[in-house]
Amino acid sequence: MRNNMGGLDRSLRVIIALLITLLYFNEMIGGTLGIVLLVLAIVFVLTSLVSFCPLYVLFKLNTCKRD
């Protein structure tokens, strides 16, 4: 499993995940949409931690700096 996410991509995902979490716990979003967005936020954080996104492999994307 090779890294395919760059630093900016990882940072943006964490920021988006934090924003979704804040909106959910401040009850600005809720119900089914809120739960779906929370799951998406968890996926964003996990993929940021491992620097690997399975969807990038399918679409042949790579945001890492090339050597």
Rank of each mutant, 00 (worst) to 15 (best):
D9R: 05
N4Q: 06
G30M: 05
L61G: 03
L33G: 07
T63K: 06
L49C: 06
T32C: 02
P54I: 12
D9S: 11
A17F: 14
L58E: 09
I42C: 13
F44C: 04
R2M: 09
T32E: 13
E27W: 08
L18E: 15
S11D: 08
I29K: 05
N4P: 08
L12K: 09
K65F: 03
L38S: 13
L55P: 00
F52E: 05
L38W: 08
L49W: 11
D9K: 11
S51V: 04
F44A: 01
L61V: 09
I15F: 15
I35M: 10
V43A: 01
K60D: 14
N62D: 15
E27G: 02
L22V: 12
V39K: 03
I20V: 15
L33C: 01
I29T: 05
D67L: 08
L23I: 04
I16W: 14
V57I: 06
L12W: 10
S11Y: 14
V39R: 03
V50P: 11
L58A: 02
L49Q: 09
R13Q: 03
I29Q: 02
N3G: 01
N3E: 15
V45Y: 13
C64H: 10
E27T: 05
N3K: 13
I29A: 00
I15G: 04
I20G: 09
V57N: 10
I42T: 13
E27P: 00
T21A: 14
R13D: 04
G7H: 08
S11P: 00
N4A: 01
G7D: 13
L19M: 13
Y24E: 05
N62V: 05
V43W: 09
M1E: 10
K65C: 00
T47K: 04
V14T: 06
L37V: 02
L61R: 15
F59W: 10
L55N: 02
L49S: 04
D67M: 02
